[in-house]
Design a protein around this nucleic acid. Sequence first.
DNA 1: AATTTGAGTATACAAGTGTTTACTGAAAAG
DNA 2: CTTTTCAGTAAACACTTGTATACTCAAATT
Lengths: 207, 207
Amino acid sequence: MSNGTSRQEQKERTRRLLIDTALRLSSEKSFSALSLREVASQAGITPAAFYRHFASLEDLGLVLMDEVGLSLRQLLRQTRRERSPMPRWDAIVLSVDTYLDYIRNNRSLFQLLLGERMGGTPKFRKALHAELERFKDELASDLTELQKQYGPPLKEPRMTAEVIVSIFFVVGAEALDLEKKDYAKLAHKMATEILMVFEGAETKKSR
Amino acid sequence: MSNGTSRQEQKERTRRLLIDTALRLSSEKSFSALSLREVASQAGITPAAFYRHFASLEDLGLVLMDEVGLSLRQLLRQTRRERSPMPRWDAIVLSVDTYLDYIRNNRSLFQLLLGERMGGTPKFRKALHAELERFKDELASDLTELQKQYGPPLKEPRMTAEVIVSIFFVVGAEALDLEKKDYAKLAHKMATEILMVFEGAETKKSR
DNA sequence: AATTTGAGTATACAAGTGTTTACTGAAAAG
DNA sequence: CTTTTCAGTAAACACTTGTATACTCAAATT
């Protein structure tokens, strides 16, 4: 036993194949436009075999969304952490570039994350909403920490984070329909917008 | 002729019925999840009769999106125009309230606008993108004009507009899954965020 | 008054959908 | 070596889907 084709190993392999297939297909159409049969046949198994792994296509989708959310958050957090002290503008540009690179290289993942924001089932929307909140939380906590060291304190870290996440989403959606040559320009615009928000978040007069 | 049941009048009536039905149904599921047969039967006509009005369901969707974009832009522009000189905070709050009211009263329209941002066909996405650009343009031009009268000039009106539109979209999506009692809190948050952006857009040091 | 027009109906078609059922055959357990 | 387990197959089910065809019958035209 425990060679390359043990029972549970094979099952796990098929499971991943299903997930990856669904991901690949959902970059062509939206995930909610997929069918169970389509995913199964593209993965090379019968429709009935699908049920050995997921109770429904929606269940697969929820797993998928977990994965994309997790990987994206980790990536960004790591980017923010790894940087040594540097001018703020450069730090923003670095994060923005990392983000846009991620989108370009994981088009389908990102498309899934954004695409089901409204379209999907309520369960789906709720899961995505939770993902977004985690996203904001992490960004907010990183912002307070970083600003504590390098700059004046932010008035409203949570709101600042939310505005920045808004920018991430809208620009991200814009990036999907863009050619590679226009990425630099988009990155610069995005960085400028984020800097603008930072400066607004630092001004003293509140309300 | 030309009584209440002339030929073209009847046709127009059915056309509107189809549009309205599709709109109503797309507040339950996303528009791209609708079927031609479903819309037709809910409108009380046969599938084949649908083709007397639209070549496809997608065509109906494009008409629908035109309508929602138009009405939303008009509403917001009107709100910004009608107000007399008032403190900026109050002006922002007024716009935000109007916006959230619109969303609450035209849930399905708004949901359509947001829902097909990624999910729909390329044609759909392109149409929506164009809608968004018009949106930003109008806001940007209004911003410059208003700030010329009441405040310091904005560094980057177009970018300011884009950030604000980002907020509109993300908060709008949030509003859809909210109970009425939480609208006030959301409105206040949204207004604060927008003010934050304004202040950032006014600071002198650029780049 | 006779004719044309066209929105809407009835019906049929091929294709695709989710799910269920009984099965096979090899890995795992005894 | 025998038995159990279970991922995957094959086939059928009762749908729904988009589209095409031939039709009706009232309004509009002549």
